[in-house]
């Protein structure tokens, strides 16, 4: 009955990551409410912007081509925000203590949530694209442009998920995490996602032109529909890399700071 005593044995880094990714994906699949929201929200936003606002914003019916990148980022922001809730849930539950007393890189539990969030959001992005094509989205992108666009979107999701993971780590509880995360969801509205920034008042335009979402939107839109990109691509990748690195450092610092203190 008793397994042999194996003091020094422990899982490899690869196996540890695989286990935690699998765990987080199971969590995602079993959290039916969040899953339904993650699929419903893109559908609702897509229909809302195309049929309700679309007519007023561009009577020519071309608004759908303009708005698709914005909806993708809005949905990615929303979808990633549940990483904050998941991480905060794990940190306040006893299970983290079990992981921490095992000879593994316990930070992998966060990596698991990030990868699961990435997978979830890529599925949601595919849903948005599918629906967009149905309601009249006509991209001009070739294979390379598509690949680049998906690359930028992936980078964005990864960066914002790490940011949410860090927020989840510093928040005291899952509901606090969801509260802090909410503020970030407004950023896409203050960018060129839904209306061109030149239609905004000057002071707001200053904000919109210089925040990270705008160059990311312009890059994706340019790749998909052929609108001019200028130097937005550099800004987009730069912002994502900066957010990614900063959030990763913030997250690992918070994770380890909590370790000896709980």
């Amino acid at each position: 009955m008793i397994a042999q005593i194996k003091p020094a044995q422990s899982a490899s880094v690869g196996a540890t990551h695989a286990v935690f990714i699998q765990r987080s994906i199971l969590h995602s699949v079993r959290n039916t409410e969040a899953l339904i929201m993650a699929i419903m929200l893109p559908i609702m936003l897509m229909l809302l912007f195309t049929y309700v606002f679309g007519g007023a914003l561009d009577p020519g019916g071309n608004y759908v081509n303009y708005v698709v990148p914005g909806i993708i980022l809005l949905c990615a922001g929303f979808g990633s925000s549940s990483a904050a809730v998941d991480v905060a849930g794990d940190m306040t539950n006893g299970i983290i203590d079990r992981f921490r007393t095992m000879p593994i890189r316990s930070m992998s539990v966060i990596v698991g949530h990030v990868i699961a969030s990435l997978a979830r959001n890529l599925v949601a992005t595919a849903v948005v694209f599918g629906l967009a094509l149905l309601v009249g989205f006509r991209p001009s992108a070739g294979f390379v442009e598509w690949l680049a666009a998906v690359g930028v979107i992936t980078l964005f999701i990864l960066a914002i998920t790490w940011l949410y993971a860090a927020i989840g780590l510093v928040a005291g509880s899952p509901s606090a995490a969801s509260g802090y995360g909410f503020a970030l969801l407004f950023l896409p509205y203050l960018s060129s996602a839904f209306v061109p920034t030149h239609t905004m008042p000057a002071w707001l335009r200053g904000v919109a032109d210089n925040q990270p979402i705008t160059p990311i939107i312009e890059t994706i839109r340019g790749l998909l529909t052929g609108s001019p990109i200028h130097d937005s691509a550099y800004w987009a990748v730069g912002w994502c890399a900066l957010i990614l690195a900063g959030s990763y450092l913030w997250a690992s610092w918070s994770f380890h700071r909590k370790a000896g203190r709980r």
């Binding site: 194996k6 044995q9 422990s10 899982a11 490899s12 196996a15 540890t16 286990v19 095992m102």
Partner: peptide, 8 residues
Amino acid sequence: RMIGRLSG
């Protein structure tokens, strides 16, 4: 099984 895998 998760803990088993994590324990090597």
